[in-house]
Amino acid sequence: MKVKVNKNAAKELKKMLAQEEAQGKLFRIYVSSVHGDHAHYDLMLDTPTEKDEVVHTDKDLDFILEKGEEYLDNVWIQYFQLPKEEWVITNPSKGVHHHH
């Protein structure tokens, strides 16, 4: 399974991981709902279980994904500051978009 993260998102996520309440935890990417052929995604701090896979990225961040969840493979996390500050989590291989 793969996760892509843009530079802005990596910078913001690393700031969050540096906070005391995040110590010992990783970000979990999960499907919050599925509507027909598309899904909505979200992030939360969590610890992996036996049902999970920890995925390493080229931005020196690790993410928890549920094993076998097809909508999570190739998910892309982006953070934009313009035209407005927003998180965008998509899965280009599924044609899926969600603004967080």
Score class of each variant (00 low, 15 high):
M1T: 07
K2T: 06
K4P: 02
K4N: 09
V5E: 00
V5Q: 01
V5F: 04
N6K: 01
N6S: 09
K7A: 10
N8V: 06
A9G: 03
A9Y: 00
A10M: 09
K11D: 08
E12G: 02
L13W: 05
K15A: 10
Q19Y: 09
Q19T: 13
E20L: 07
E21G: 10
E21R: 14
E21D: 15
E21M: 13
Q23Y: 10
Q23R: 14
G24R: 07
L26I: 03
F27N: 00
F27M: 01
R28H: 07
I29W: 00
I29S: 00
V31I: 12
V31W: 03
V31D: 02
V31M: 07
S32P: 05
S33P: 02
S33R: 12
V34L: 07
V34M: 07
V34D: 04
G36V: 04
D37E: 12
H38T: 15
H38W: 12
H38V: 11
A39N: 01
A39G: 04
A39Q: 01
A39D: 01
H40R: 15
H40Q: 15
H40F: 15
Y41D: 00
D42R: 12
D42M: 10
L43S: 02
M44A: 14
L45K: 06
L45G: 06
D46S: 11
T47C: 07
T49E: 11
T49S: 15
E50H: 13
E50F: 14
K51P: 04
E53Q: 11
E53M: 07
V54C: 04
T57G: 04
T57M: 04
D58C: 03
K59I: 06
K59A: 10
K59M: 11
D60R: 11
F63G: 01
F63K: 00
F63Y: 03
L65R: 00
L65H: 00
E66C: 03
E66Y: 02
E66W: 03
K67F: 02
G68Q: 03
E70K: 11
E70P: 06
E70T: 10
Y71W: 15
Y71T: 01
L72F: 02
D73K: 02
N74G: 08
V75R: 01
V75M: 04
V75I: 06
W76F: 12
W76M: 10
Q78C: 06
Y79G: 03
Y79Q: 03
F80A: 08
F80H: 10
Q81W: 11
L82K: 13
P83H: 04
P83D: 07
P83N: 07
P83I: 05
K84G: 09
W87L: 08
W87D: 05
V88Q: 08
V88N: 01
I89V: 08
T90D: 10
T90I: 11
T90E: 15
S93L: 14
S93Y: 12
G95S: 05
G95K: 05
V96A: 12
H97F: 13
H98D: 13
H98N: 12
H99R: 15
H99Q: 13
H99S: 13
H100I: 09
